[in-house]
Amino acid sequence: MDFAELTVGQEIGSRTVEVTRADLVKYAGASGDFNPIHWNERFATSVELPGVIAHGMFTMGAAVQLVTDWAGDPGAVSGYQTRFTKPVPVADTDLEPGALIEVAGVVGALDAENSTARIDLTVTSGGQKVLMKAQALVKMA
């Protein structure tokens, strides 16, 4: 991908991430974040959550793959930030996904001096924005 060919507003693509409770258990193990709100329904409802919710960092981590694939090198992602605005409840299911996370990205800004592109991600689940101001900085070759 050539930096000179990029324009602000250009779409980089979209993807749907299917999430099950098993995915949250895997993420808990991989990340070391064992907060029971991400795997224990009884505990989650006792702290006034709608049920088991995804780790914010799971959603953030899964959403950036769109950028990594577009950039062609995960090492090119030099910055990444977001605000967590709404929880992603993950239903207790057998085979079907317990939640769907929809991710879409556009080129939000271009910095010619540093050859970086800012990718702005729109991340929703159940029709609600779950990440706000999700932005990744990509160092172009």
Binding site: V17, F58, G61, A62, Q65, P74, G75
Partner: peptide, 24 residues
């Protein structure tokens, strides 16, 4: 393990040769 947990599929997370081909 972490890459699988965030559903990342880029070969540079899994295959040393693929990572080296990108200069890492």
């Amino acid at each position: 393990e972490f890459a699988r947990a965030v559903k990342a599929t880029h070969p540079a997370h899994f295959d040393v040769d693929a990572a080296r081909a990108l200069g890492h």
